[in-house]
């Protein structure tokens, strides 16, 4: 795994929020190939969200090195970062009454000058992002009045409007019902195929990970337990090691992908 062959690469990265405290991310080395959908799995507090923050440059590692296409992210300005990586947070609340189109247009920020207003081109990109996420009809609705699933799709549209090649998603389906979970998974798969967007997705939903992700990274206590193709990494042993739960991991005959059925607490 050399940094050059990956869109996004982390080399022996460590991070702590509290200088004397324990390392939240502890020596993570990780390469993300172009066009991959990488799932980050791990129990609560395993460092998934922090790792995403490190990859997006929101926090700076205490040691180690993160590169995008071979360029160290420390050498990039925030704007330059934002043109390369977009982030979809777990939940988005707007303090003010923005319209859906306004929210999506905010994604154009890193492409505009300090006093530049969005032009026709930016609006076209935003509308296209709305169309790609199936939210074109919501354009002039107030963001605050949308359902959870609609909001999440609009936020994904806003991230797409950033025109970056990498998308980081932090538990994108955590607060959504089954129908919306399904929609988001299908949407992400489609965006990955049609637009060649590389994705890193953290999730607690093992079945979502099994359907969506081409490869998985298993995190425990800030360390990488395993990293590889989903088919190889997701099995009864890894589920047990990660969560302390005995589970059946079987290929679903009709869905065609692995499914995880928890059976009992392993301890």
């Amino acid at each position: 795994m050399t940094p050059g062959s990956h869109v996004l690469h982390a080399a022996d990265v460590a991070f702590t929020y509290d200088r004397r405290g324990r390392l939240v991310v502890d020596g993570v080395t990780l390469g993300v190939g172009r066009g991959a959908i990488v799932g980050l799995l791990g129990p609560n507090g395993s460092g998934k969200t922090t790792l995403l923050r490190l990859l997006s440059g929101t926090v700076t590692p205490v040691s180690g090195r993160i590169t995008i296409n071979g360029v160290a992210i420390g050498t990039l300005s925030r704007r330059e970062m934002a043109r390369r990586i977009a982030v979809v947070p777990q939940e988005t609340h707007s303090a003010f009454d923005f319209s859906v189109l306004e929210i999506v247009l905010m994604g154009r920020y890193p492409h505009l000058g300090a006093f530049e207003l969005e032009g026709a081109n930016d609006v076209a990109i935003a509308r296209e992002a709305l169309a790609a996420t199936g939210t074109a009809a919501l354009e002039s609705r107030r963001f605050a009045t949308l359902s959870g699933g609609e909001k999440q799709r609009v936020v994904i549209a806003s991230a797409l409007a950033q025109s970056s090649e990498i998308l980081l998603l932090d538990e994108p389906t955590a607060s959504l019902d089954l129908g919306f979970q399904f929609d988001i998974a299908r949407l992400l798969t489609r965006l990955n195929r049609e637009r060649a967007v590389t994705m890193v997705v953290s999730t607690h939903d093992l079945n979502l990970a099994a359907t969506l992700c081409t490869e998985l990274v298993l995190l425990k206590s800030g360390r990488v337990l395993a990293h590889g193709p989903t088919e190889r990494v997701l099995n009864a042993e890894s589920v047990r090691a990660l969560y302390g739960v005995d589970a059946d991991v079987v290929r679903h005959p009709r869905a065609g992908h692995l499914t995880v059925v928890p059976l009992a607490r392993a301890d």
């Binding site: 923050r53 997006s56 929101t58 300005s77 925030r78 704007r79 970062m81 934002a82 043109r83 990586i85 977009a86 982030v87 947070p89 988005t92 609340h93 707007s94 303090a95 003010f96 923005f98 306004e102 929210i103 905010m106 994604g107 920020y109 890193p110 505009l112 300090a114 006093f115 950033q162 980081l168």
Partner: peptide
């Protein structure tokens, strides 16, 4: 006068603003 767009983004959350390119 240099702030309005930055305020839009920050009002959506500090981290969201940072990931979109705001210092």
């Amino acid at each position: 006068g240099s702030l309005p767009r930055v305020l839009d983004l920050i009002s959506m959350g500090a981290e969201a603003a940072e990931s979109r390119g705001v210092d």
